[in-house]
């Protein structure tokens, strides 16, 4: 139906524009490559608005080029054009038509605004997660399950997650582009937002979604990433169970454990059933993909991080630790056994 509204030229332009749009993008989930229901609804609205705006642009551009070609001053000609005051019919036309176009956009806008604002926390099957944003990392608290973690949000597939959004310091903004729009985390004022999680994909890489801080929050803002891991319901239950188990490490990690107790435990909890004192909870750290939110979780980077967090991630609030190479190795071994 919609295609009939377009002239041939406009349709061609629209197709070219959409191709350009998609050419620049990988298959990575993003606002225009949505992977989950909320982002899909928002994408539909984006497409509708692009469509309406392309109609407007086409009309203006076509008129513009006609004017430029037809009414340029001919060489040698000095004519005084007719001084036209205005034209009521035309002026009413270009007042009314934009209003109609805007109505087409306004109705779904209002509908979706109200739909996305609903709070589903008491609905059966909804998973409630509290997000606490810190400079420059993310804390995820599953209060209903008594589980506390950081940096990696583990969620069961096809589930509605109702987020409670808080901040520990300045304003941040919680955003998973492929799954849905963002919402600010304001210090002292709690926000609510829900997102629907996608289904698990056969390709394991595709079950990990990049999350970002979208509100400028200081030096480390650019690197304040986190991950959303979508797993099956069974895997999720197993993960919750594992988070409730106390940490057990091998003989070889004893030295690291002592170092951790001496240097790290005052900030980092290693108990998944308790909120961490001030740094990210490190229970299950060995299973994380990244250190500092963006570097691969490998020995070299972990050591670099402990030696001088600010050099890896500007503005990081963790102090630098002056440990010997041997101590660092021991500590990393211990960290890599935190399952």
């Amino acid at each position: 139906m919609k295609h009939r509204l377009f002239s041939g030229r406009a349709a061609a332009l629209f197709a070219a524009f959409m191709m350009l749009l998609l050419a620049g993008c990988s298959d990575r989930p993003s606002p225009i490559n949505p992977a989950a229901p909320v982002a899909e609804e928002q994408f539909k609205l984006i497409l509708l608005s692009i469509g309406i705006m392309l109609i407007v642009c086409t009309v203006v551009f076509v008129l513009f080029f006609i004017v430029l070609v037809r009414f340029r001053e001919k060489p040698g000609e000095v004519k005084i054009p007719k001084q036209v005051e205005g034209n009521h019919k035309l002026e009413i036309t270009w007042t009314v038509i934009p209003i109609l176009l805007l109505l087409i956009l306004a109705v779904p806008t209002v509908a979706l605004t109200f739909a996305l604002d609903e709070n589903h926390s008491d609905v059966e099957g909804t998973l409630n997660v509290q997000v606490v944003a810190h400079q420059f990392w993310w804390e995820f608290n599953y209060h209903d399950l008594g589980v506390y973690t950081a940096q990696e949000l583990v969620v069961p597939e096809n589930t509605r997650v109702q987020f409670t959004l808080d901040s520990a310091d300045v304003i941040h903004s919680f955003w998973v582009p492929g799954i849905g729009g963002k919402m600010d985390t304001n210090p002292g004022i709690t926000n609510h937002m829900y997102l629907d999680m996608p289904a698990v994909q056969p390709d394991p890489d595709k079950n990990i979604y990049v999350g970002k801080c979208a509100e400028y929050c200081g030096e480390g803002h650019a690197l304040m990433d986190f991950k959303v891991k979508v797993v099956t319901q069974d895997e999720f239950n197993a993960w919750v169970d594992s988070m409730r188990q106390p940490v057990q490490v091998s003989e070889a990690a004893q030295r690291g454990e002592e170092l951790f107790a001496a240097n790290c435990i005052s900030c980092h909890a290693i108990n998944g059933e308790q909120p961490s004192p001030s740094g990210p909870n490190l229970k299950g750290y060995a299973n994380r993909d990244l250190v500092g939110g963006f570097r691969p979780n490998e020995t070299q980077w972990v050591k670099e991080w402990i030696r001088s967090p600010k050099d890896v991630k500007p503005g990081a609030t963790m102090p630098a630790f002056n440990l010997s190479e041997e101590e660092l190795d021991a500590l990393v071994q211990y960290l890599f056994e935190l399952r």
């Binding site: 982002a39 608005s49 705006m53 919402m183």
Partner: peptide
């Protein structure tokens, strides 16, 4: 004269941004 098309392009993205639920995606990008 070239102000007309460039400003129209800035204006239409303004209307796109006005659509609040879509802005949840555009905002601060």
């Amino acid at each position: 004269i070239s102000f007309v098309p460039t400003f129209v392009m800035g204006g239409v993205t303004g209307v796109m941004l006005a659509s609040a639920p879509a802005d949840y995606q555009y905002h601060d990008t």
